[in-house]
Write a protein that binds this DNA or RNA. Structure first.
Lengths: 135, 135
DNA sequence: CTTGACCCCGTAGTAGCGTACAGGGTTTAT
DNA sequence: ATAAACCCTGTACGCTACTACGGGGTCAAG
């Protein structure tokens, strides 16, 4: 008794490559809309939802949090907004990424220096790595 | 009625630049040892604890988790170990950092391409950034 | 018609790293 | 002597993004 176009939550999950629980979680958190239900209470999804979930996954891979993704989706729904709002957010995210890279490079530099100074056979009391932490 | 060498938890916290609650948390999580107590129940710290907390902060800044820091501290206590164990951990951490940097660079590249393609004045429906997510 | 796969809901747990009370007792400075 | 500042315990909360569980109802195949 399933109408032709619609998908169950399990089918959506499989197609989108996420767990069923994840979809219900997104619904609870208002990241996706509540779908209509069958008589039985089963959720009935428009296949478009799969694209929405792909969007979410992709944006996550690019470093956006769910909160930020909600904002991106909201922008998109509002026809008054232009590209500019999205661009601004993407640029802010770029700056954030740049900062993270710089932080990691600083860590890397120190750890490299300190492992280079380390002669593995020395006793632990002379370990330059631990001494570097000890300051 | 305080013996001269020892510090209260608040003094330790101030000197180490962490919160009092953080120190109690570390104690609960067995990251630092339980100190002796006064009659009143107050913790009495050896000033060495401040160094230990600096060690923890420093290692955190270099990307080590508390769990990993516990391991480093354990290594140090064991007089049989040599520098080698520490060096191995530092090198593993270096690899991890390198991987994170590469991941972030990939995100950066895609976001840069896509924001470059974006002409801010276009309507949202044509936004190349959102279309990049839409795949 | 039964069986097994699927779905419902609500609640709770996970990990990492703390932070924030509430409801007390203690120390120290004035 | 009293008040401010500090300390104690225990519990709960905050964040992110899920994941799991229990106790049910529903659906499709054989």
């Amino acid at each position: 008794m399933k109408s032709k176009g619609s998908l169950t939550i399990g089918q959506v999950a499989k197609q989108a490559g996420v767990g069923v629980e994840t979809i219900r979680f997104y619904e609870r958190e208002r990241i996706i809309a509540e779908p209509p239900r069958r008589e039985s209470g089963y959720r009935e999804y428009d296949p478009e939802i799969v694209k929405r979930l792909h969007f979410i996954k992709r944006a996550q891979e690019l470093g956006f949090s769910l909160k930020e993704i909600v904002q991106l989706l909201a922008l998109r729904v509002d026809p008054r907004t232009s590209c500019a709002g999205v661009k601004k957010r993407a640029e802010a995210k770029l700056e954030e990424i740049e900062r993270k890279i710089q932080d990691l490079k600083r860590m890397q530099k120190i750890l490299k220096e300190v492992t280079a100074a380390c002669v593995a056979s020395k006793p632990i009391t002379d370990c330059p790595i631990l001494h570097c932490f000890d300051v």
